[in-house]
């Protein structure tokens, strides 16, 4: 196959992605960077953790994504009395067939919005995170495969709020990205106020992609070339987190793998067939912020430390 044909095919592949990006941007206003990163996360097959106050558009974003990608959407509001069975589903005895039938819970969706995940009990959290890792759930000894793709967008209130159960560190690692949407800027917020209600807008969205095309895009992204130089940079960044003074536990090898996966997806979105340092820089903070565990006396948060490291580490 010729290079031109390759390039044309790649363009055909990512053109709908760019259309999708534009469509989501028309609903979630003033957040192009975050939307780009969300798409990267989706392409890289990762789960997303949105850490924000209520009402800044987390749900709108998730719904817009699900509508655009034509994904089957599910939503669970985590509370302290929610039980794992409420999420996963239960086996119910059917007197007619004299058998236990499995009734799937809301987790059986292609895109699951897990709202306020840190309000759930640790037991509930771990059920969700296990499902995220294995892409299957086990009830009464029977395994049930979750749909494919299976994307979890979890939201988390800032940790200082009362009545929360902080997510265990090992489980935070399951989320590829952690994003902070924040308030929109003035123009975006005024536009938001002036326009129609978001719910109506989302109902109008056209599905531009589907699960099958997403799977192909994911394969294409992971086939992109990462040169030894790019891998050197990944290592340099990961190693820097481990020797940084403010950090108690640096990035794990799994985080390094996630960083490279995300960078490949970012490169694909940019229409390139190889990873550049800029790809790694674009996704590094999102990959690192929730994984970096800071020392108790360290100032700042994971994101600011990650940004500092990015500025310090020389590109090899």
């Amino acid at each position: 196959m010729t290079v031109e044909a390759d390039a044309r095919q790649a363009r055909d592949l990512i053109a709908p992605l760019h259309a999708a990006e534009a469509q989501i941007n028309s609903v979630v206003l003033g957040k192009p960077r975050e939307i780009r990163l969300t798409l990267v996360c989706l392409l890289a097959g990762g789960h997303l953790l949105l850490e924000d106050l209520p009402g800044v558009g987390k749900t709108t974003l998730a719904q817009a994504l699900a509508a655009t990608f034509d994904l089957d959407f599910g939503r669970v509001q985590f509370t302290s009395d929610l039980l794992p069975a409420d999420l996963i589903g239960v086996s119910v005895f059917d007197p007619q067939t004299r058998r236990f039938d499995f009734h799937p819970g809301p987790i059986f969706a292609q895109m699951l919005l897990a709202d306020e995940i840190n309000r759930g009990t640790p037991k509930l959290q771990s059920a969700l995170l296990e499902a995220m890792a294995e892409q299957q759930v086990t009830v009464d000894g029977a395994s049930h495969r979750l749909p494919d793709p299976f994307v979890v967008i979890a939201t988390q209130n800032p940790l200082e709020q009362s009545g929360t159960f902080p997510l265990p560190e090992s489980q935070l690692d399951r989320f590829m990205f952690s994003l902070n949407l924040g308030y929109p800027d003035e123009g975006a917020e005024k536009a938001l106020l002036a326009a129609r209600e978001r719910r109506a807008l989302i109902a109008d969205l056209k599905p531009l992609l589907d699960g099958e095309r997403l799977a192909r895009l994911r394969d294409a992204a992971q086939a992109l070339h990462a040169s030894p130089a790019a891998i050197d940079y990944v290592y340099a960044l990961v190693a820097a987190t481990r020797s940084e003074r403010r950090v108690r536990i640096g990035l794990s090898p799994r985080a390094g793998i996630a960083l490279l996966r995300a960078a490949r997806s970012h490169a694909l979105l940019a229409g390139r067939n190889h990873v550049l340092p800029e790809d790694l820089q674009a996704v590094f903070v999102a990959v690192a912020r929730h994984r970096l565990l800071l020392n108790a006396d360290a100032s700042g948060d994971g994101a600011s430390v990650a940004r500092d490291l990015l500025a310090q580490v020389a590109i090899p």
Partner: peptide, 9 residues
């Protein structure tokens, strides 16, 4: 160029 500045930037 900064040491951590990507070539494209």
């Amino acid at each position: 160029a900064g040491a951590s500045e990507g070539p494209r930037d």
